[in-house]
């Protein structure tokens, strides 16, 4: 990105002109992507007393509450021999990752309105840069999971090697709707109120505190229209191994829905981003 490998390029600006250099520009602005991601991480726990420990406290307390409410009080069944706490945590991990990405990324364009109205760069960098914060908190939660598994003596099998794939899926499931919402929020601030609501409801309609097997078999496929079902099942499959077999048709449906939403998100974002600075 020095002036030598960024040659004197010719650029035409015109209304409605499809920007052929767009994806190349994203590559050229990769440093900005990293620095924005770094900024969000660096700023997150400044002037807090216990700092990064917050990343431990929140998921841990949620896990305890869910285990007590769903496992002990409601007496919902676990999967195979897996301890209920591990089951809950394996669901909580992708859920927290996805919901924090959805929340942060969808608001990211307007929280960075100062940048949008004063400098040019491919706007799609902004929502993607917020993913880093979610991933770091996710990494911390993963450590708790390791602790909880050790406590219960749960040993993962080879399935665990595929966990990174499901992490990527969790990010993609969240970023699609987040991009769409980020673009819509610029125009209609109403969506600012809708997203937290979706996240709140989503926690209960997704299999976070319980196993997907609780849902009657004839409803399984329909239930999988919620893409988080596929992601959470994938996590449990990777972490609990043989105790939690993956229901493949359901998983495929979830991934199709996720792919559709991702396409819609990118498409909407790309179509509207040239007007962001007018409206913001």
């Amino acid at each position: 990105m020095t002036s030598s490998d960024r040659p004197s390029q010719r650029l035409i600006l015109e209304a409605g002109r499809a920007d052929r250099q767009y994806w190349g520009d994203i590559w050229r602005y990769r440093e900005l992507f990293f620095i924005l991601a770094w900024r969000d991480v660096a700023v997150r726990y400044k002037q807090t007393v216990i700092g990064l420990a917050w990343a431990f406290v929140r998921p841990f307390v949620t896990m305890v509450v869910f285990t007590v409410v769903f496992g002990k009080l409601a007496r919902l069944p676990t999967e195979g021999d897996a301890p209920y706490a591990v089951l809950v945590f394996a669901g909580l991990l992708p859920w927290t990752l996805a919901s924090s990405i959805l929340g942060d990324a969808s608001n990211s364009v307007i929280t960075n309105s100062q940048l949008v109205s004063k400098v040019y760069f491919p706007r799609i960098i902004i929502p993607f840069a917020t993913v880093m914060v979610g991933l770091i908190d996710f990494g911390v939660s993963l450590l708790i999971l390791v602790g909880v598994m050790a406590w219960y003596g749960v040993v993962p099998d080879w399935h665990i090697l595929l966990l990174p794939v499901f992490v990527v899926l969790a990010v993609l499931v969240a970023i699609g709707p987040a991009l769409w919402a980020a673009a819509m929020i610029v125009k209609y601030r109403d969506f600012r109120f809708i997203i937290p609501f979706v996240v709140q409801v989503g926690l209960y309609v997704s299999p976070v505190g319980f196993s997907t097997k609780v849902v009657p078999p004839e409803w399984q496929l329909l239930y999988s229209l919620n893409p988080m079902v596929g992601v959470i099942d994938g996590f449990r499959w990777a972490i609990l191994g043989g105790d939690s077999p993956l229901y493949l048709p359901g998983f495929a449906v979830s991934m199709l829905v996720a792919a559709g939403m991702l396409w819609l998100g990118i498409h909407t974002f790309r179509r509207t981003e040239r007007g962001f600075a007018d409206l913001i």
């Binding site: 002036s3 960024r6 004197s8 390029q9 010719r10 650029l11 035409i12 600006l13 015109e14 209304a15 409605g16 949008v116 109205s117 004063k118 400098v119 040019y120 040239r274 007007g275 600075a277 007018d278």
Partner: peptide, 18 residues
Amino acid sequence: ILSRILEPTLGRVELNGR
């Protein structure tokens, strides 16, 4: 408009250089 923050409604701009 020249720095690509806003899109022109009409007309065009040609830029040569960083």
